[in-house]
Design a protein around this nucleic acid. Structure first.
Lengths: 167, 167
DNA sequence: TTGGAATGTCAACAAGACTGACATAAAATT
DNA sequence: AATTTTATGTCAGTCTTGTTGACATTCCAA
């Protein structure tokens, strides 16, 4: 199989070390582009990528608890807490004590928080939209398939749950 | 077009805000998986992701200059320098003053450096290989197409140059 | 030859991740 | 009722990795 094909005509070229390396480098460079636009916006404010992530997922799942967010973001509570504290102080996020379980804090975006989220999303979506449009529907489907296969299993669970919570 | 299709049967569903958001979240979660395995290895040593990146691209283009690496990695020279210094001190990277231009430093991996690179690559490749295998060749092609479209133009240049320098 | 541009180094600082220890309140269990 | 577990928050300290600023060396061109 020196030509990278099996006897059944199925191409395995995409599994050579060279192809894998190209995939790895593509992922590296693309992720830079992926975060570049929101990063630029955030740099001018006193915020960073961590704030973007928090705001994104609070917008995504309003009323989510701190613990929930912790699992999704994969950081320590101390780290998240620093970010949440500044967002709450600046009036972008509201924290409400849980009704059923008073230990929990449920997180919501304020109007200002929603505005920031929108601004950041718009910037990021514009780039993704352009990339998706250029690449076409089949490429996008493949893109999603590979990304899902690349996730850790617990994260894939979190991702799927979010994905299926479309309203 | 409420059904997300044009009159020409071309699906535009992949460009709805909802689809874009799913793509964004897929990218976020997948990147965590992408870096998880090498990160685990690096945590046990005194190194981080920045060291991995440096070692990867020095291995990729032996004899590259600091400035070259700077452009690829997209960090400040001061930041890269700290990483390179530790790698050189630890005997993983060698820095040779340029013959033609003595201002330049040409970077090479030592035997130990190559061994580390191999170890990290193997871990990362294993995951990508599994993901590629599960997703199949068409999905992988789509994945690459979308990632390339997502890069900043200058980075796409760097990526393409690397890609085409296969020996 | 002199002044600017390119290259790289050192120092100091900031963001954002981490661990560990501890406090509080509420829920769950015994 | 007492105890343990869970959810959250906070303080202190560390690490990685980014940043700017200042500076030395080298090359090249006016």
């Amino acid at each position: 199989m020196a030509d990278g094909r099996t006897g059944h005509g199925e191409s395995l070229l995409y599994l050579t070390d060279e192809q894998l390396r190209q995939g790895i480098e593509a992922m590296f460079f693309a992720y830079r582009g992926f975060t570049a636009d929101p990063d630029r916006i955030l740099r001018d404010m006193a915020y960073g990528r961590a704030h973007h992530r928090a705001v994104h997922f609070i917008n995504r799942a309003p009323g989510t608890t701190v613990n929930n967010l912790l699992n999704i973001l994969g950081v320590t509570k101390q780290s998240l807490n620093r970010v949440l504290r500044t967002l709450i102080e600046d009036g972008l996020v509201e924290s409400h004590v849980g009704k059923a379980d008073k230990r929990e804090r449920h997180l919501y975006l304020t109007e200002d928080g929603a505005a920031l989220e929108q601004k950041l999303s718009d910037a990021q979506r514009a780039r993704i939209r352009a990339a998706f449009r250029d690449a076409g529907p089949e490429a996008v489907a493949g893109f999603r398939t590979v990304l899902e296969a690349m996730m850790d299993s617990e994260l894939r669970g979190a991702y799927t749950r979010l994905k299926e919570s479309e309203t």
